[in-house]
Design a protein around this nucleic acid. Structure first.
Lengths: 169, 169
DNA sequence: TACGACGTGTTATATTGTTGCACAAGCAAG
DNA sequence: CTTGCTTGTGCAACAATATAACACGTCGTA
């Protein structure tokens, strides 16, 4: 089984406070190791992203930031996001213009995302088979693969079990 | 081999006029069959997209439209794009906010795109193995797959052969 | 003819992301 | 410690992408 579940769906009963604290602690350790600064703004943005455990839009983050920091403006948020992306602490979901926390920031990687169209939950996989079959097929066409953007829209286990259907977006 | 190359890279020596005319003729036939109207605006937008054979941005299309139709405004372009997307005549590249022609509009499908970071050329694959491995892996996690967004950034055969490197974006 | 569906024109607005410059905070060399 | 460098932040404006709302026109058809 080559699947690594980097960030699972937020299942019922998971201790979300703990999950967020964990992510922040990991981020702090990693930044220290790398000699980069997880400043209060950057830390707060990362926390806001993890708190919701679903893709967060830049301007939603901005609104939240503004509630506690009068000076917050678009560049405030985008700079923090750029830093967090750079350090691998978050990923950008292209199909949503939104950002999610990364459960495994240590190694640089691109994620393979499963996005629930009903509840917006996101899980991140990192599956070597997926990566390989894409790289092989692209290679057959003479294409040299750089970064893969893979975003699957559908229904998460919980929403599926609740009888929500794919066709009704 | 489960790979279908829906739209190949524009290789040297390919007769681009013919390629564009073909795409337009196919589009016309398909719209007629379906009883929908490929109006002059819609046809022109489709033609502009095919002409360049690379991802086209909405506002670039708008600028071109405006050159020949004074009344063109953002809704003019976006309505045409919506129609063309709906009919499967073009695809949207999420990671670029751009649009490309589809070489096989007949059957509804989502494409798997190879995008050259050097020359911006795009090829569309539609590979059943890729689709299946993703669906299987997602299924293992209890996720029901709806639509797949797959966009691979890298180097097309020509740019690769010319010695361009991946790391230099 | 009258109606209804569809396509377009027009204006305004919403959403998402960037540039440029000034200032402040942390840090290292002398 | 202080000078100077690098990095982070404040702030104002702007650029790029996309949608809303409503009026009007065209065309097929009852």
């Amino acid at each position: 089984m080559s699947t690594t579940v980097v960030t699972p769906f937020k299942h019922e009963g998971h201790d979300h406070d703990h999950c967020v604290d964990d992510a922040l602690a990991r981020a702090e350790r990693q930044c220290e190791r790398r000699g980069v600064r997880l400043t209060p703004i950057r830390r707060r943005v990362l926390e806001l992203i993890w708190r919701r455990h679903e893709p967060m839009k830049a301007y939603d983050l901005l609104d939240m930031l503004r509630a506690e920091r009068r000076s917050a403006a678009p560049p405030t948020v985008y700079r923090a996001l750029d830093f967090l992306l750079e350090e691998g602490l978050i990923h950008r979901i292209e199909s949503l213009n939104a950002y999610v926390g990364c459960g495994d920031p240590d190694r640089p990687h691109v994620g393979q995302f499963l996005i629930c169209r009903h509840c917006n939950a996101v899980a991140e996989m990192n599956d070597a088979d997926v990566h390989k079959v894409l790289a092989d097929k692209a290679g057959d066409l003479g294409f040299q693969v750089g970064t893969q953007t893979i975003e699957i829209n559908g229904l998460c286990p919980i929403c599926r079990d609740q009888g929500h259907a794919l066709n009704a977006v």
